[in-house]
Amino acid sequence: MTARRPVIGVTVSRRSGWRIFPLIALNVWLAGGRALRWQAGRAADIESVDGLIIGGGDDISPDLYGGRLVKSARLDPDRDALERGLVLAAFAHDKPVLGICRGSQMLNIALGGTLHQDAYETYAASDHIRTVLPRKTVRITAGTRLAQLAGTQPMKVNALHTQAVNRLGDGLRIAARDSAGMIQAVERVKEPFALGVQWHPEHLFYAHRQMGIFRALIAAAAARRDHAAQLPGVDAVAR
């Protein structure tokens, strides 16, 4: 009998989820999983899934981390509350998390970190390229799990964000930066598996290195479903 596909809860914006969710769901399916759409105002139960993806979207309110509000910020407090609660519930239930763009920032905040509210004001030398095409270069930190999954050669990614991780949350380490030093990926150093990337790998499903990110999540979710350690399963995908 074929094992069932791990089920992944995916949070999206009420405003743009109709176009974002199908693309993330495609990546999850190609990696061996099955996605459920979650958004503010709908039921979302972490116990009903094997893993969690926090998708991209609007800026996160500085109320969550004591930051300052910038005029250009577009906020969704209901989504903030939903996603922060889901990340904490995922860790409480030992379930893996992938954060995409905003999701990477929410992963950091839920673990007690902070953000640069205007990342390009702080990192003026960073390439401010807003596109779904892979035109921004990031450098992956050697010795990290992301390096195992994607290698340490410079990686071309897309970029749509205005915020970025500042002070790291508890149990996280930096997994990638851009050429100006802005943090582009963070990862958890112990169980359960958690990875946050500042870019949008769901738009780059044709790239083997990007699909490795989704395969890692599905491997971790399958291990959690089977009550096994997650990190060895992720490491096996990376080989």
Rank of each mutant, 00 (worst) to 15 (best):
residue 199 W to D: 09
residue 174 I to N: 11
residue 19 R to A: 00
residue 101 C to H: 04
residue 168 L to D: 12
residue 121 E to N: 08
residue 66 G to T: 04
residue 39 Q to P: 00
residue 66 G to C: 09
residue 225 R to W: 02
residue 9 G to L: 13
residue 50 D to F: 08
residue 138 V to L: 11
residue 6 P to Q: 06
residue 89 A to P: 05
residue 107 L to Q: 01
residue 89 A to R: 15
residue 194 A to V: 04
residue 90 A to F: 10
residue 47 E to W: 02
residue 214 F to S: 03
residue 181 G to P: 10
residue 103 G to F: 06
residue 43 A to V: 07
residue 20 I to K: 02
residue 198 Q to W: 02
residue 85 G to P: 11
residue 112 G to W: 09
residue 68 R to L: 12
residue 170 D to A: 14
residue 212 G to Y: 01
residue 105 Q to P: 07
residue 132 V to G: 11
residue 2 T to I: 08
residue 145 R to A: 07
residue 16 S to F: 08
residue 234 V to I: 10
residue 97 V to G: 01
residue 156 K to M: 14
residue 47 E to F: 03
residue 84 R to D: 08
residue 117 Q to C: 01
residue 38 W to C: 05
residue 163 Q to A: 02
residue 82 L to P: 09
residue 57 G to N: 05
residue 7 V to P: 01
residue 214 F to R: 00
residue 149 L to M: 04
residue 236 A to S: 13
residue 134 P to W: 12
residue 144 T to P: 12
residue 16 S to A: 12
residue 107 L to A: 04
residue 228 A to D: 10
residue 181 G to S: 07
residue 10 V to F: 09
residue 13 S to E: 03
residue 22 P to Q: 03
residue 190 K to P: 00
residue 101 C to S: 04
residue 232 P to N: 04
residue 63 D to A: 15
residue 238 A to L: 08
residue 129 I to V: 15
residue 205 F to Q: 12
residue 81 A to W: 00
residue 7 V to A: 09
residue 63 D to Q: 13
residue 105 Q to N: 03
residue 235 D to F: 12
residue 185 A to E: 09
residue 236 A to W: 03
residue 110 A to R: 01
residue 224 R to Q: 14
residue 168 L to K: 05
residue 64 L to N: 11
residue 222 A to F: 02
residue 163 Q to N: 06
residue 194 A to Y: 03
residue 208 H to C: 00
residue 181 G to A: 06
residue 129 I to R: 13
residue 226 D to Q: 15
residue 227 H to S: 13
residue 130 R to A: 12
residue 22 P to I: 04
residue 30 L to R: 14
residue 33 G to K: 02
residue 238 A to C: 12
residue 112 G to V: 09
residue 125 A to D: 14
residue 184 Q to S: 14
residue 25 A to M: 02
residue 123 Y to L: 01
residue 205 F to A: 15
residue 120 Y to P: 13
residue 225 R to M: 10
residue 217 L to I: 07
residue 226 D to I: 00
residue 52 L to I: 05
residue 213 I to P: 04
residue 14 R to G: 12
residue 11 T to Y: 06
residue 72 S to L: 01
residue 6 P to A: 08
residue 177 R to P: 00
residue 85 G to H: 07
residue 123 Y to N: 02
residue 102 R to I: 02
residue 238 A to V: 09
residue 195 L to S: 05
residue 105 Q to R: 01
residue 106 M to K: 05
residue 213 I to L: 06
residue 141 T to E: 15
residue 23 L to Q: 12
residue 214 F to I: 08
residue 98 L to H: 07
residue 146 L to G: 11
